[in-house]
Design a protein around this nucleic acid. Structure first.
Lengths: 155, 155
DNA sequence: TAAACTAGGACTAGTTTAGTACTATATGGG
DNA sequence: CCCATATAGTACTAAACTAGTCCTAGTTTA
């Protein structure tokens, strides 16, 4: 029913690998090898992640990629935004709407609201958790804590 | 970032219109007129909604469509399932996975969990609210109440 | 200066989505 | 009995998006 693109999924896998060794610098080839993804694809994704500020890059010999900040400070929402852009749940909700009947617009606003709620929830999930690195020792993660999806307030 | 298909959005508009007058029987043509959608599209959607049990239909002269049950008993999740089917957030999470490295699978499980959480939240949103019919007099809707997205428990 | 990297963009194939058309079936009225 | 008005189901086409690849340019270090 809801879907994220394959590429976004791949990107998460790549970021998870980087998160596992935050100090180490990986080349695109190394990451491709470890994740079993094709090199061009990994390369493309890393470029995009770099452009969006999620990873640092160094060029030239012995260059490679590095997580731009601790995994705990990278959210699922940021990863999705980096790759798919901030696409709304419905077209009507995003920018200009031509579907100008009242019932439709009410529906649009409702979806918009659901969308916002989902976004908010994705902002609470960090790469640490996606990577399965949120150690049992730490404080309970958002995934386990149970958190409010939809909060009170104006649309 | 997350998206529902146009058709699903249309379907919601149609269902919202039906919900506004639960007693009245609408033909596909009437609904198309009122929602400004193309007749074949509306017709196609209504057929599918009927197959999934969301609307009742009567054939022949003076036939038409009717909500199968009160709008309060139709959830956003049901509408999405009816049209897009129960597609998972990621491919890896849905059926069999060939991406068999550990990090990847951890990621997959995490997405799966997020997916489940979103589903759960969509099950709490009714057509009444989507249609903007949840009167201010009633009890607060799930959209306003704030409800836990992710609950404790095994994956 | 050559080798090993990343940066950026262009291009192609495949899949999905949206929309339309056509045929069959059911109902009710003249 | 027949025709007009509906829905039911299926098949088809066009457009959009996704995934994946390739090529050229720029950067760093031995």
């Amino acid at each position: 029913m809801l879907r994220i693109s394959k590429l976004t999924d791949y990107a998460t896998v790549i970021l998870a690998r980087l998160a596992a060794e935050p100090e180490r610098r990986f080349t695109a080839g190394q990451l491709a090898g470890e994740t079993r993804l094709a090199v061009p694809t990994v390369s493309k994704l890393l470029k995009q992640l770099h452009r969006r500020g999620l990873v640092l890059s160094t060029r030239g010999l012995h260059g490679g990629y590095l997580l731009a900040r601790p995994a705990a400070q990278i959210t699922a929402a940021q990863i999705l935004d980096a790759l798919d852009g901030p696409v709304a749940l419905t077209e009507c909700a995003s920018s200009e709407s031509h579907c100008c009947i009242e019932s439709s617009c009410l529906v649009g606003r409702a979806w918009q609201r659901v969308n916002l709620a989902i976004r908010r929830s994705l902002q609470e999930i960090t790469l640490l958790e996606l990577a399965g690195l949120s150690g049992s020792g730490g404080h309970p993660s958002a995934l386990d804590r149970g958190f409010p999806l939809l909060k009170r307030g104006p649309l």
